[in-house]
Design a protein around this nucleic acid. Sequence first.
RNA 1: AAUUAUGGAAUUA
Length: 315
Amino acid sequence: LGNFKILLGSLVKDEKIDLALKIFSELQGSSLVPDTFVYNVMVNGLVKSNRIDEACKLMDSMKQLNLSPDLITYSSILDGLGKVGRLEEAFSVFTKLAEEGYEPDVVAYTSLMDVLGKGGKVNHALTIFRTMAKKKCVPDVVAYSSLIDSLGKEGRVEEAYYFFEDSKRKGCTPNVGLYSTLIDSFGKKGMVDRALDLYEEMQRKECLPNTVTFNNLISGFAKAGKVNVAEKLFEEMEHKGCFPDVVTYNILIDGFGKVGMIEEAESYFKDMKLKGVVPDVITFTSLIESLGKAGKVMNACELFDTMEEEGCSPN
RNA sequence: AAUUAUGGAAUUA
């Protein structure tokens, strides 16, 4: 059974859920008795593939083996329901777990908070955050990040910043994920100076920026039309040994395209291929749109025709 | 003491 767990876990991580399901059914047909742990691996795998109905069915089928879903099973399901916008059902999973006598932990609270916050119910998420603290459940960096991200996505950046400072007061050490989250919030609001302040702060505190950090910074500047700074940051990220990915290039191609600097956009397109970063459907869409708007319709059509040979199907 | 693959947070058209 231990080997099954390791195998299924790695398949789920690689998003090979169909193969995992096949092997799981072999396990069910064998003399080995699956436990809650191995069910959790599968439930989570289905959730990650957005197959929430199957995940729920699998959870329900545990009863036949006299297994009970635990806090982890419920948290996975809650998260999955929320991600597909089924907020009420997600909430009722939280209620149910409490009714069954489980004490929600920081992960269960954060899952619920995240679902509410991303589902446009930020004030409700705030309430949950406060409830959690009252229940002596200490919010960690991920809990703060989720809340800060939700506030930021609503444009409530000063509140987001308040909670960032609050996390430090309460003894949390912001990590690269938290810094990146808040940098994104400020960037999207056009407050690029605040985003830069955070970038400097994290380096003072020896928290290393990663590709997402740079992507968020670059995106903020690009969206504000400050493509020259975006370009500088791109160079800086390469100097710091942080590799640009397809998202980095997409941001730059879109940014330069939107301000009509088509040659620069095209040069990033060349550069990415040179560096082995494979363009995706977003890359092509941005560049085609920019070429079209610049009146280079022929070039746009030609680019469209190369998509298939570059292994990218138009959507 | 730490580690030893089940759940929660961040980026692009």
